[in-house]
Design a protein around this nucleic acid. Structure first.
Lengths: 253, 253
DNA sequence: GCTGTTATGCGTAGACCATACGCAGAACTA
DNA sequence: TAGTTCTGCGTATGGTCTACGCATAACAGC
C-alpha cells in the first residue's frame, strides 16, 4: 500500500498546495488557459444557483466554456474540487474578536457568522466532508474562534473541544432548518406550513399509549406554531455556552 | 404543482406506510416474491459490509438473487430505501429510562445508546437525511428521549429542543471520529497516527504570526497524543448537559 | 534556430448509476 | 372460463466520474 506521506509529512493534493501558494508554475509547456480559482468560482456559482447536486464536472466546464476533461488538469478529482468549494464558499473568517468583548460575546458573534454563511449557502451542508480542515480559510475560522477563548483559563485542548462543540451545533441546526426549507419546496407546501403538516402527520401515525410523551408534545402544539426560527438557534447556543461558562468558572477558580 | 397532501394530511410513501403496518396486500395478482423488510435487510447487510457507497440498487438486488428492477415494485426510489435503511439500522430504541434515574442519567444513557449505534454503523452518518423522522423506530428513539425529561419543569418545546441538541451533538461527534478512521484507512496510516500526522501537516502550513492561537494549540501538543476517543465525547456531552441543567434549575425555581 | 522536454487541452471510451416503460405471465374474482 | 390486476424483470435512456492517449504549444539548452 502506498502510504500518502513523505519526509515532510502527509502529502497535500496539488490543488490544495496551490491554495496555500506553495506551488509555482513550471516554466515549460503551454500557458494554462484556466486557473484553479476560476474553476472553483464557477463551481460555487453553479451551487449557489442550482444546488450542490447540479455541480457536475461537465456542468462546471460548460460554465467556463471549456471541455469536461480540461478541468482535470487543475483538480485531481471531484472531491478535491468540493474541498476547494467549501473553502471558498465559507469565505473569509469573521475576524478576531473585539478586544473589549468577553469570550462569550466573541463566540456568539463567531457562531452567528457561520450561521449566516450556512443560511446563505446551504449547499455547504451537503458536501460530504472527508477530514479535518486543511484549507487556508477554514483554518482562519478556527484561528478566530480560538482567539475568543484567549482570555480564559481553559486548556488548549479544551478550547479546541469547545470550538468543535459550537461549530458542530451550528452546522447541525443549519442542517435541520435547511431540510425544512427544502422539504417544503419539494412537497409544494408553504415553508410556514411545513412543521404543522409534519405534526399532523406524526399525530396520525402514532398510538398515544405507545408514544405518550410524544403525544403530549404534539398536543402542546409544539410543532403547530411557526415561531421565529432564530429562536431555536439561540436556545441551543445559549445552552451550550451556559455549559462552557460553567467550565470556564471552574477553571478560573 | 401537485401538492403531496390529501384530506388526512401529507401523503406517505407506500413503503413507509407499510413500515407502520398501514397497508394490506391487495388480494389479486401473483404473490410477491420478496418483501420490503427483506430488501431493507439486504441493503443494510451491504452497507455493513462495504459501506454506504456500495449500496446500489443492482448490488442489493444481487444480494437477493433478484433483478435490479424487481426492487422498484417494493420501494418507490432509492431515497425511500435509504430512509428505511436508517430506520432499520438504528434498531429499536434503548427503552424508557429507569424510573429511579434522574433526567441527566437517563439522557446520558440515551446519548450513549445512539453513540454506540453510530460507532457500529458509521454508514448511517452518510445517509443524506431529507427531513424530520417519520419512521416507527426513529420516533421510538424520540419518545424514549422525551421520557427522560418527564420529571423536569421544562416546557414541551424545550424538551424537544434539548433532544435535538443532544442527538445533533452525538451525530456530529460520531461524524468526526468516523472521518478520522476512514481517513486513516484511505491514507494507509495507523488510526492512532492520524491526528498527529494532521497536526504536523497544519504546523507545516500555517504562519505562526498569522495563526498565533492555532500555533499555540499545536505547540501544546493537543493533536499529538491519542487520548481515549470517548473522553472527547464525554467532554462535549457534559458541557451540553451542564447547560441543560442550568435551565432545568431555573425552570424549577 | 533547432531539438528535446514537458504541459496543456480535450476527444474517446469505459464502467457505473438510477429509473421510465412495457410486456409476459400468475393469481385472484365473478 | 373470462377479466382484472399485480408481479417480475428486460430493455433502454441519460446521467455520472474519470483513465488514457494524442496533438499541440511553449520553453531550455545547444
Amino acid at each position: 500500500m502506498a502510504a500518502k506521506t513523505n519526509d515532510s509529512g502527509p502529502v497535500l493534493p496539488p490543488a490544495i498546495e496551490s491554495a496555500w501558494g506553495l506551488r509555482e508554475r513550471p516554466p515549460k509547456g503551454p500557458r494554462p488557459g484556466m486557473s484553479v480559482p476560476a474553476i472553483v468560482d464557477a463551481a460555487v456559482r453553479v451551487a449557489d444557483a442550482d444546488g450542490l447536486a447540479a455541480v457536475s464536472m461537465s456542468r462546471v466546464a460548460k460554465e467556463l466554456g471549456a471541455a469536461t476533461m480540461a478541468l482535470y488538469r487543475y483538480v485531481g478529482s471531484k472531491d478535491e474540487l468540493l474541498m476547494l468549494m467549501v473553502d471558498s464558499g465559507y469565505g473569509p473568517s469573521p475576524g478576531p474578536p473585539d478586544p473589549q468583548d468577553d469570550w462569550r460575546t466573541g463566540l456568539t458573534r463567531w457562531a452567528w457568522a457561520e450561521h449566516e454563511v450556512l443560511r446563505r449557502r446551504s449547499w455547504l451542508l451537503h458536501v460530504p466532508i472527508s477530514g479535518p480542515p486543511i484549507t487556508p480559510q477554514q483554518l482562519g475560522w478556527m484561528e478566530d474562534g480560538l482567539r475568543c477563548l484567549d482570555g480564559t483559563a481553559l486548556g488548549e485542548g479544551e478550547k479546541m473541544s469547545v470550538l468543535l462543540l459550537i461549530t458542530g451545533y451550528v452546522r447541525n441546526e443549519a442542517t435541520l432548518t435547511s431540510q425544512i426549507a427544502e422539504g417544503s419546496r419539494a412537497a409544494g407546501v408553504e415553508p410556514a406550513e411545513m412543521m404543522p403538516a409534519y405534526g399532523r402527520l406524526v399525530a396520525r401515525l402514532i398510538d398515544p399509549t405507545r408514544f405518550p410523551a410524544l403525544h403530549r408534545v404534539l398536543n402542546a402544539g409544539v410543532l403547530s406554531q411557526d415561531d421565529h426560527p432564530d429562536d431555536e438557534f439561540v436556545f441551543g447556543l445559549d445552552r451550550i455556552l451556559d455549559g462552557v461558562e460553567a467550565l470556564v468558572h471552574r477553571r478560573a477558580a
